[in-house]
């Protein structure tokens, strides 16, 4: 959305308020909407969010488009549906900690003891986005989604490498680790979960998907490229 010079979060907030921004923006969007409606077969660009609020959605969209930019290898993160994958993952059983032991007492522990936060993944994501945006506002006077690419890169690198410490005690690297894992899951999981749209993640690397009867192929494709149209669960359902 930022490609159009439009901030969707501001647009939606404005729309609720009925402000001038909304009017202008709606006019600006109209031709694209009309075009999209002419292609009913295509997946909707944004099917809507189940868990993320406006600020979180703007963060996740900006984050996945920065990590997975449009280039010769794949469409950008939001066009792959990685934002939708993340939203659904957080809204579902995993996000709600369905297999997480959640009894206290809670201790920081040693890194060898693994995840010890009293937060389910959805809570961790929510707190992490808020803390990252607070850091961005303090450092750059803008939320993450409003930053230019170089500063987004600085922030994500800082989270990953432990150079950014959040105020309030949330461990930034733990948040980043979960976020990064979900981006990779959204890129390469079966499209049934909302990401890897049109199997573009699989196509990018040449992974053939779910049909895998290779007994005859071991010799036939020994040290040879195996190129097929990948198949997903829904293709066979």
């Amino acid at each position: 959305m930022k490609d159009d010079g439009i901030n969707r979060r501001e647009f939606l907030k404005g729309a609720v308020a009925g402000g001038a921004v909304a009017t202008t923006t709606a006019v600006g969007l109209a031709p694209q909407v009309a075009e999209a409606q002419q292609k009913p077969a295509a997946a909707p660009a944004n099917p809507g969010y189940s868990y993320l609020n406006l600020e979180e959605a703007a963060f996740v969209e900006a984050m996945v488009d920065h990590m997975i930019p449009a280039d010769q290898y794949s469409p950008k993160g939001t066009d792959l549906g990685i934002n939708i994958f993340i939203d659904r993952a957080l809204a579902g059983g995993w996000g709600k900690g369905d297999r997480l032991y959640m009894q206290g007492p809670w201790k920081v522990g040693h890194p060898n003891q693994g995840y010890q936060l009293p937060l389910k993944p959805a809570d961790l994501y929510r707190a992490g986005i808020a803390a990252t945006n607070a850091y961005c506002k303090k450092t750059y006077s803008k939320s993450f989604d409003q930053l230019p690419a170089a500063q987004k890169q600085e922030v994500l690198t800082g989270l990953q490498g432990g150079k950014i410490n959040f105020e309030g005690g949330l461990p930034a690297r733990t948040f980043f680790g979960t976020m990064y894992q979900t981006v990779m899951e959204g890129m390469f999981s079966d499209p049934i979960y909302g990401g890897n749209r049109n199997k573009a993640g699989w196509r990018m690397i040449g992974f053939p998907g779910v049909v895998a009867v290779h007994a005859q192929n071991i010799e036939k494709f020994r040290d040879k490229k195996y190129v097929v149209e990948p198949l997903s669960i829904s293709d066979l359902s």
């Binding site: 297999r99 959640m102 060898n112 693994g114 079966d190 779910v210 049909v211 895998a212 669960i233 359902s237």
Partner: peptide, 29 residues
């Protein structure tokens, strides 16, 4: 097939594994 060929569900969400929410172990070095 096709539902068993789901890396997210079986590898990363541990669908066939013991559920640590119910019973797990504690660990230390």
């Amino acid at each position: 097939v096709p539902n068993i060929r789901d890396e997210l569900r079986y590898v990363h969400r541990h669908d066939l594994m013991q559920n640590t929410a119910r019973d797990t172990i504690t660990v230390r070095n």
